[in-house]
Write a protein that binds this DNA or RNA. Sequence first.
DNA 1: GTTGTTGTGGTAAGCGCTTACCCCACGGGG
DNA 2: CCCCGTGGGGTAAGCGCTTACCACAACAAC
Lengths: 365, 365
Amino acid sequence: MEHGDGTASQPTIYDVARQAGVSIASVSRVLNGSRNPLPDTRDRVMQAVTELGFIPDGAARALSARLKEVIGVVIRRPTVTVPDDGIFEDEEASLQFPDLINRGIEIAAQRRDFNLLVSSVEAGGHDDSARIFALARKSDGLILHDRVLEPAQLERLSRRVPVVTLAGMATPATANVGSDNAAGMAMLARHLIRDHGYLTLAYLGGFADSPDNVARRAALESEAAAAGAVLGTGPEWTGNYEASGGARVIGQLLAAGAPLPRAIMCANDQTALGVMYALTSRGIAVPGEVAVTGYDDIPMARHLQPRLTTVRQPIQQLGAVAFETLYALISGDDGARRDVVLPTRLIRRESCGCAPEPPPPAGPR
Amino acid sequence: MEHGDGTASQPTIYDVARQAGVSIASVSRVLNGSRNPLPDTRDRVMQAVTELGFIPDGAARALSARLKEVIGVVIRRPTVTVPDDGIFEDEEASLQFPDLINRGIEIAAQRRDFNLLVSSVEAGGHDDSARIFALARKSDGLILHDRVLEPAQLERLSRRVPVVTLAGMATPATANVGSDNAAGMAMLARHLIRDHGYLTLAYLGGFADSPDNVARRAALESEAAAAGAVLGTGPEWTGNYEASGGARVIGQLLAAGAPLPRAIMCANDQTALGVMYALTSRGIAVPGEVAVTGYDDIPMARHLQPRLTTVRQPIQQLGAVAFETLYALISGDDGARRDVVLPTRLIRRESCGCAPEPPPPAGPR
DNA sequence: GTTGTTGTGGTAAGCGCTTACCCCACGGGG
DNA sequence: CCCCGTGGGGTAAGCGCTTACCACAACAAC
C-alpha cells in the first residue's frame, strides 16, 4: 500500500548494503561510527547512502537500540470556555510561558539529536493519565509542566520512565527544575512595601495544588508579616493562572463591595493582564489607585499599559536545563542534579507605581 | 542497564500473554479490537493488562504496523540576535502565531491518537534539511510552517512522505492550508482608503520568499491601484515578520528623512508591534499621524496601545485543518483536498484611527 | 614454522509488536 | 454420517535496525 501521493517505500539498510557490496552490519557500523571501518568500506557505504538517500527508520532504530531519541513534554491546556466578552478570546490558548519553555527544551534537545513529542491535557480532563502513560511509551523520558498529573499518578509514572517536572517538587524518583520563587517574591514585596510604602497587599493566586503558587504565597506572607503589611489572601483571591481568572476575581470583589488593597500581586503575568483590564475598564487607575504586579515576565508584560512590573524567570533556560536534567537521567548519569533552582530578577516597570523610564533616544538605533 | 532511577524494564506483550494464559496474538487482537475475541479471552487479557500495567511500546508497534501515529511539525525560529535595546528581548522567541497553530494541530491530532514531534530550524540555518529529513523518518508525515524548506528540498521530501505546508502553495506532491490573504488584505485596504480616506499607504512586508507575504502585497497593490491610492513598497519596506524588523525599517526610514505614509500596513502583528513602538517612542502619534495595521490577530494585538487593527485568521483552526489534511494523505484517502483556504475577518480597533469602543459595563460580568 | 594478537567483516539473533496462515472445534447442510 | 463453512486461537514470519559472536586475514613474537 502506498501513501496518498505516490511515495514509494523508503530504502532500507539492506538496499544500502547491496549497493555498497557489504553486509548490513558494516553499513550500520559506518553510520554509527563504531568499530572504525576501513576507509574503503566507509567510502563505499557513504556513496551508496548518498545515492539512495538512505535515512534510517526511527522506529526500527529505537526498537533495536532501546533508545528512541525522543522525549515527551506535557502541558496543561486551559479548558476552552465560552469566550466571556471576547476580550480574552484565544488568550488562554496562547500559553506564552509554557511555549517559551518548550522552545528552550527543544533547542537543548536538538544538540543531542533528540526530538520533542508534545501533548497537552485539558484542565478538567478525566483520564488524561492514560494519554501521558502512552506518551511515555513513545519516548525515553518525560518533562511535565505544572500540574499535569496527580501526585499518585506521577509516582506510578516515575517508576517506569525518567521524569522531570517543571514547577513541582523533586521526589525520590523525579527531578524538578524551577526558579527561585521565594527570592523573586521577596524582592517584589520589598519593593512594593519599602520603596512604594504600600501597606495593604493582596496575593491573587493560582491553583492551590500548584507548588509554585504555594511557594510564592508563602514567601509573600512571611515578607508582609516581617514588614507589618496587611496581606489579603483567602478563597476569594483564587485565580487560575489565566487572564479570565484575574478579571473574574476583581469583578466579584467589586460586586461584593469589598475594599481593594493598595497593591495586587498576581501569581503570573496572565492573571495580572486580566486584573489590569478589569480595573481600568471600571475606571480604577493602575497604578494610581491600585498597583498590579505579575510574575514570569513573558514578552507581553512589556506591552501592557501601564507596562507590567514583574519577576523575571529565565524562561527558555528553564526548558534547556529541564532537558539536560532529563538527558542525564536517561543516560543513567547518577551524578545528575535532581533539584535545580534558577535565579529570578525583579523587573520594575510602571504598573507598580515606578516612574516611566525616559523615552529612548529618538535617533535611529 | 537501567535508567538513572531504578526503573525496571516494562512488561511486554509476552508477559501479558503468559499471565492471561493465551498467545501473544490474542493479546494483540484484544488490544486492537480485531477479530472479535471471545468474552472469556478478552476478560483474561484485560485483567492481565491491568495487573501488569501493560502499555505497548511505540517503536515496536510502529515498526510492525508501519504506522508511527506521529506527525512531524517544523517551525522556523528566528535567529537569536543580540537584544537591541532590550525591548524586544524574547519577543522573537515567542512565536505566538506558530505556537497557536501548533496547539490546533495538537488538539486535532489527539482525536486520532496521533502525537506531534516538533522541531525548529533556525533562520540562517545551513543544513536544516538533514534534520527535517530525519524527522520524516520518525513520523508518518510532516506539517511545515512558512519557509522552513527550499522548494527543491521540499519537492524531494514530498516524494518520500506526505507533506502539508502552511502558508505555502499546494504542489503536485504536497497539500497546503492557508487563509484567504487576498480577501483579508482587500478588506483592510478598503477600510483604510474608503472609511478613513487615507491615500498614502505602505506595505511593510515579510520575506520575499514567503507566499503569504507575496499574496498580501499583491492584493494590496491591486486594491490601492483601483482606489487611486499611493502604495509604498520596495526594498526599504522589507521586514522579517518580527518586531525588531518593523522597528528597524521605521528607524532607517526616519534616519534617511523619508516621509512616512498616512498608514502603514504590516505583514503581521509582530511587525506592527515593532512599528508602533518605533513610531510612538519618537513622538509620532499612532493613529493620529500614522495609522498602523497588522495581520493574524494574535492575542497580543488587543493589548497594544492603541489596540491593533488587524485581519483575523482562524489560527487554531488552521492547525486543525492542516492535521486533518495530512491525516487524509497518510490514510491514503485520495479524495483529500489538497489546497484549503480558510476565511479571514477584518478586526477594527483603534490603531487604524477608528474610535475606541465604548467601555464595557462597569458591573461584574 | 607455529602460535598469539589485532583488527576487520559477516552472520544471525534479537528488540516487541502485528498479522498471514494454519489448525481445530463446532454446526448445518447434503 | 460426512463434509464444509465459520469463527476463534496459536504459530511463526516478518518490520528494519543494532550488536554479540564468530571467522579470518595480517602481522608480531617466539
